[in-house]
Nucleic acid binder design. Structure first.
Lengths: 202, 202
DNA sequence: TAGATTGTTAATCGATTAACAATC
DNA sequence: TAGATTGTTAATCGATTAACAATC
């Protein structure tokens, strides 16, 4: 569904409008700001309910709150970060995680020198403890920040420990059972897309 | 074009096949491995040329090389990283950058305490020098790793200094002229998509 | 009421899949 | 030659856009 990739963008722009004190906005005005067609905006909003008022527009605050709820920002999840390298540490420091309530309960690494070190207030533990920790602390989501070569093994272990979702930063396509949610951030694919666009620009 | 998002994936799987010593592969076999339909694979490859042999299949090595060329992996770019926080440092250490020849020439930050520090062999400089550096060192690409609040200003300055492309990690939609290539990595949008999928799973 | 804008259906567009002739 | 698989056209599917009646 292409729409769910647009939801975060609606949410972000509505937050901006709220901050600016805009109370009401029409699909036409929002269209100008966001670059989607007014028609698409109305279609999108109507997929989830009737949030507008004919002849009038959309109440920014209501819409913001509703889209937040649709995205699931009213939920809290317990997460672990696997891989405490530069990327893992950047993610651990990533404020959106806490704001969005994807709260990291621990980090895991294979390197004994890192055990016990804290990134912010998140402790790095031995990856051997991963399954037990996930089970005992009812972790919902595993964030994979390992090299590609270890990512599938980590995913398998997370799945065995009954993880509900995986946020994968490793540059591979993980094989996981259907009932586990998988969301990828394939940074290198974005880099390659940039490369293609640079080469084919003009 | 949805196709260009698939090119990196083809490239990655072909690299794997090469490593395994697979010399020839049919669209049907590749379909099994990658999860695209054989029809789509043939369509995709044919967009750029006739790389296969009827009744036979595709030569993995040739195809890998050709797709690499289409993506532009035969090019070299000079880049700068703006923002030397956790994310900027993670990017600076990101090996794909060097392998893909998007070589960082310098990092920039606003915090004087960081000036002169090296991340790997990349020096952190005063962001006030950004425009001059970009001009004098013929930088092609600016990698924006600042908070959202500074990203547009940084982008404006890069554009003024004649940057050709921007790889943006800040969580905003940059406004830049058409002739400048823009590629975004919106990590928080991925997190929100994960949130949505978690909430709506089952 | 008149003007504006939504909600929603219909038309269009683009991307994916199916089918099959060409050919190795 | 027969079997296999590409290259490519046609059919389908889904997503976007346009149009307009409903209604505030």
């Amino acid at each position: 569904m292409a729409l769910i990739r647009r939801l975060p963008k609606y949410h972000r722009y509505l937050a901006e409008l709220l901050e600016k004190g805009v109370a009401i906005i029409s699909s036409k005005e929002l269209s100008k700001v966001m670059g989607f067609t007014a028609s698409q905006i109305r279609q999108d909003f109507n997929t989830f309910g009737e949030f507008g008022q004919q002849g009038y527009g959309y109440n920014v605050e209501v819409l913001y709150r509703e889209i937040g709820r649709i995205i699931g920002l009213d939920q809290t999840y317990r997460t672990v970060i696997v891989g405490a390298g530069h990327l893992g540490q950047a993610i651990a420091n990533y404020t959106s995680l806490k704001e969005s309530k994807f709260i990291p309960q621990a980090m895991f690494d294979i390197n004994p020198r890192m055990f016990g070190i804290k990134i912010g207030d998140i402790e790095i533990k031995d990856v051997d403890e991963l399954e037990n920790f996930v089970r005992n602390h009812q972790i919902d989501i595993g964030i994979i920040c390992t090299p590609g070569s270890n990512a599938q093994e980590v995913a398998d272990r997370l799945v065995k420990a009954n993880i509900k979702g995986i946020w994968n930063f490793a540059p591979i396509d993980l094989k996981i059972p259907e009932q586990v949610v998988l969301e990828n951030v394939h940074v290198s694919e974005s880099l390659f897309a940039l490369s293609f666009l640079m080469k084919n620009n003009k």
